[in-house]
Design a protein around this nucleic acid. Structure first.
Lengths: 205, 205
DNA sequence: TTCAAAAGAAACGGTTGCGTTTCTTATATG
DNA sequence: CATATAAGAAACGCAACCGTTTCTTTTGAA
């Protein structure tokens, strides 16, 4: 259904790449639930049998496609010297890999209850978006760095404030079509930092 | 598959009620995409033909079930005399109807792109959760009331702060299994009100 | 007590997608 | 140039679910 010159037959890497692209396109446009092997093959300009020679079923195909396209997320937290820039940089770093695959894809997968347990098992970096443990840990690490510098006092700071930037980012990811840079800036400069500052001035109430 | 005494045959209202229950249960457990007429009929202890005599297809059935169970949302905003209690009351009022149907159901439907346009057309009160216009309008109304009382100055207040309580509530709704009262309290007292207060003190920067 | 309306039960043809198989055709490698 | 390997193409049987139909049985209301 796509390109393909007559008498030209792709194979190996090149063909596989085309199939991965087709898979992600389909995922993005119609979602996991309605994705079919036939349509993916069709879109890739190839044949259902070719898919089944490589992947056992739809789930394996999708996982492979995501796995290939999803960049690894670095565990390190930034340390720029001030909290504001740390948080900003971290949020940006979080978004980067997700820009590689469509937002619609993420949405669709997040809400596919039947596939979640498989995804979580197969792809730790995806599971993180569900159980925000590592994200919370990263935020806490940055906060502790700030405390060492004397920027903030963690005492009496609500846990909800600490996870707030990440929660808001995820909310944007789910509800909006894409995340702009100004969104990240707003989260950091209009919500998070003011709350931190307020909690320091009007300390214990 | 459920109750049903031999020789006892339900009809009319009672039977219909059982089917609605079965539909919502199925929705909640396996989601719209995988819900089938046969399974619903089975779960209701009845028969596929009975369903088709009332509803033309799966979509109609689901809409009917939601429609019957989803309480109407009042348009009015509370006016308790102070912003904090207004927002708190409004958020609680928002949650109430959604407690009647499973959170899993909401999640599933929110992410079913193919069904959204139908839902929106058929059920205005559901569509609100997508296009947050009315929600934003309500928040703005409460803020203006507060301004009249001299509680706050809307000048220079970020729009993002105004919608924040609702955004956070929706995020909880999507990601968590249920929303506790303390969650609502935290959103209001640890996030929203501090931000409002901060924006008043450190006014223009 | 009778009887029309509705429920229960079972089978139907139709469609879609699955995963497999078989065979032909192109192509990379040596 | 020869040959193994993999792609393309087409058809297969299978299963799930659709929405419909037909017929029997129960039931509530006249």
């Amino acid at each position: 259904m796509d390109e393909q010159k007559k008498g030209t037959r792709r194979r190996g890497e090149i063909l596989e790449e085309a199939i991965m692209d087709a898979t992600l396109d389909e995922l993005d446009q119609i979602g996991y639930a309605h994705l079919t092997m036939e349509k993916v093959a069709d879109r890739a300009g190839t044949n259902k049998a070719v898919l089944y020679r490589r992947w056992a079923n739809k789930y394996e195909l999708v996982i492979a496609a995501l796995h290939k396209r999803l960049p690894k997320i670095t565990e390190a937290v930034p340390n720029t010297g001030n909290l504001r820039d740390d948080v900003y940089a971290y949020l940006q770093e979080r978004i980067r890999p997700l820009k590689a695959i469509g937002v619609q894809t993420i949405r669709g997968l997040m809400m596919e209850p039947l596939i979640w347990r498989h995804i979580a098992a197969a792809m730790p970096q995806f599971a993180q978006w569900k159980s925000e443990n590592k994200l919370t840990a990263a935020m806490t690490a940055m906060m502790k760095n700030a405390e060492k510098r004397g920027e903030v006092c963690l005492e009496g700071l609500s846990p909800r404030i600490i996870t707030l930037p990440i929660d808001l980012l995820q909310y944007e990811l789910i509800t909006k079509q894409e995340i702009s840079d100004t969104t990240v800036t707003e989260i950091v400069d209009e919500i998070f930092m003011p709350l931190i500052r307020y909690s320091q001035t009007a300390d214990q109430s």
